[in-house]
């Protein structure tokens, strides 16, 4: 079983996990992974895209957009018609 680097996974998920939680999560996730390790051998199964699953495409026709007020209504912070985030250094 691969060791789960909970801290790394948390970073990838943009979650903060302190050390005691990390241990807790680690154990739980390892249990779940152990359950997963029991999956059968599926090497004979080739997953192919199914053409019968064909998607209907949308016609290229303009529809209404949202009013800006509606769009920004739920924003934790907005200014000058925009959403505001902490300064990003590019």
């Amino acid at each position: 079983m691969p060791g789960i680097d909970v801290k790394k996974i948390a970073r990838l998920s943009r979650l903060l996990i302190d050390n005691s939680e990390a241990e807790h999560f680690q154990r739980e996730m390892e249990n779940i992974i152990a359950m997963v390790e029991r999956l059968p051998d599926t090497s004979d199964i080739v997953l192919r895209l199914n053409p019968e699953d064909k998607m209907e495409l949308r016609a290229d026709k303009t529809g209404p957009s949202l009013k800006r007020d509606e769009l920004l209504k739920n924003a934790p912070q907005s200014e000058a018609g925009c959403f505001v985030v902490p300064k990003v250094v590019e």
Partner: peptide, 15 residues
């Protein structure tokens, strides 16, 4: 797009 400007409290986001 992100918009930056000194007068703003942070970076602005235009979708």
């Amino acid at each position: 797009k992100l918009l930056h400007g000194e007068s703003f409290s942070g970076s602005l986001v235009d979708f």
